[in-house]
Nucleic acid binder design. Structure first.
Lengths: 220, 220
DNA sequence: CGCGCTATTTTGATTAGTCAAAATCAATCT
DNA sequence: AGATTGATTTTGACTAATCAAAATAGCGCG
């Protein structure tokens, strides 16, 4: 079994490779892991020996097929655990990241699957980030809804999944249409109300049901 | 923060001290932790430096007040996690121990509290072992019920918490009275049925409600 | 072409935890 | 008492992961 240090290196290489090409520099990697560059070099060479990454000296590092498989499994654990902590344990989302950072290395694949079932196979975590599928697909085409996103993150509306004229008209009046950028200001699960704030600073209140019809993506 | 190795040493010293006096020999400790005796000696001296245990050379080791506090916290995490895995995730109880062994070192005190609330502040884990209170009381006087115990463990009835004549008469007819030794043969939560097997090998079926009225302790 | 800047790699040292095997202690048994 | 036995402690060595600081390789620029 990979140590949790190894899992962390793989996960960060995956995340850093997402934006831009898939070759990650030692500087970036060391920064993300909060270690000095020399440490990253040493570890990456060890990972390369184990067949988990390919190291191009002085250029950077890239995941092998096997390394990517492991990295996606860790990322899946991280995001499902975050979803569990927010949706089931009602934890404040600002605290869940650190918690998930430790739990992602401690839970077995079986617990992972059972959590997934308990949560109803969510497609994104509460930040709107996509959860890799069990088969290791990480789709950027999966969208969160306004009902499942935590407050704070800048979002952009991509689709309204409700065709009734009433609803569409209401949405349009509120300025809620594909392309609109906004963020969730507050989310009250017990009251079933989601409050939004658009770029002009105006707030809009929506029922949880209505919010669930509006697909969004995270603005980078 | 104590490393998970330190937490494991403390937890095992606590558990080994339970039966008999509170001085634990290096041999016992090394055996429980699956390390060679020399390793246990080295670690125990380090723990003594940190004020977590008192080491009587050639005699054994005992927890300090602070060490006991930490050990009870770890044990509480272990047993609540086990309860969560069995009651919420419906995991097979034979698998939960190893899982909890890892998770007990990964969850924060906040998650611990929220799990406790989610589970309704259980007094014992699914094995019938008492869960230490948040204040660090580990009561041997807390009993599990036949409704909450997993199958397999040898149990002894200690009390029937139902005074109606009907119920007591039924219990007596089935040979279910304080002192009777038996074990849970099967437990079907969805059907709400618990099947018992007494020392003669006979089986008795009970509703979950009825089983919940019968307090038991684990036979050592 | 050669110089210097910056990122990367190498080197040497450190910490936590471990094992194997040798040394030591204490208690018992003639 | 003296020898034997069994547990405990000590010693020396190892692995994984890290840092600090020195060495090196590329790159662009004059």
């Amino acid at each position: 079994m990979a140590t949790s240090t190894v899992e962390n290196y793989l996960k960060h290489i995956l995340l850093l490779a997402e934006g831009g090409d898939d070759l990650v520099s030692m500087g970036e990697l060391a920064g993300a892991l909060a270690v000095v560059p020399g440490t990253a070099t040493t570890m990456v060479k060890a990972l390369a020996d184990g067949g988990l990454v390919a190291h191009e000296p002085r250029q950077g590092v890239r995941l092998t097929v096997e390394g990517r498989r492991l990295a996606l499994n860790v990322l899946r654990k991280h995001r499902l655990v975050e979803t569990f902590l927010v949706n089931v344990l009602k934890m404040d989302w600002s605290k869940v990241h650190d918690e998930a950072e430790r739990l992602e290395h401690a839970i077995s694949d079986e617990v992972l699957d059972r959590l997934d079932t308990l949560l109803g196979h969510p497609a994104t975590d509460p930040h709107g980030d996509p959860i890799p599928s069990p088969q290791g697909k990480l789709s950027a085409e999966v969208y969160a809804t306004l009902a499942t996103c935590v407050a704070g993150r800048p979002l952009r509306i991509v689709r309204i999944t409700e065709q009734s004229a009433d609803f569409l008209q209401f949405a349009e009046q509120q300025g809620l249409q594909p392309g609109t950028e906004l963020r969730v200001a507050a989310r009250n699960l017990t009251a079933g109300i989601v409050t939004l704030r658009d770029s002009s600073g105006a707030t809009i209140a929506l029922s949880l049901t209505a919010a669930g019809k509006i697909l969004v993506e995270v603005v980078k």
